[in-house]
Amino acid sequence: MRVVKEFTKADIRISIYNWNNKFLIKFEQGPLEQTFKVSEMDILVEDDLDRFCEGDFFDKVMIRFKEMGQSLQIQMQNL
């Protein structure tokens, strides 16, 4: 697995890997993680990967983290 890029944006750690003819785009916030797999064939140049870290897609990643955090908190209270 090759690390393409790693950085932080809006308190979310973003790691992009190249592995097995796919790009793995991993978003991490605290104990939560979202990973998306995209075929190399769908990305013409590696700079196109930056579009996954901006705009509507990234906004939805942040919303999903909020929902995931709320679900985890509720589940932990119900143990």
Rank of each mutant, 00 (worst) to 15 (best):
G69A: 12
N20T: 10
F57G: 03
F36C: 10
E46R: 09
N20S: 13
L72V: 08
L72C: 11
A10E: 13
C53Y: 06
K22V: 11
S71Q: 13
M68K: 07
F23W: 04
D59W: 09
K22R: 15
S39E: 15
K37Q: 15
N78P: 00
K60L: 10
Q75G: 09
F58N: 06
Q29N: 09
R51C: 04
S39N: 14
E46T: 01
F57D: 03
R64N: 11
N20Y: 09
N18E: 12
D56W: 13
S15D: 03
E46P: 04
I63W: 05
V3G: 03
M68Y: 02
F57I: 14
N20M: 08
E67P: 07
K22T: 12
I16R: 02
F27S: 09
A10Y: 07
M62K: 01
S15Y: 04
M76N: 03
D47L: 01
R13A: 02
L49M: 03
Q75D: 09
F57T: 06
F27C: 11
V45Y: 07
M41K: 15
L44M: 15
E6N: 08
Y17C: 01
I43H: 07
E54S: 10
Q75E: 13
D56K: 13
I25G: 03
D56Q: 14
L72Q: 09
I16G: 02
Y17V: 03
F52D: 01
D50H: 02
N18F: 05
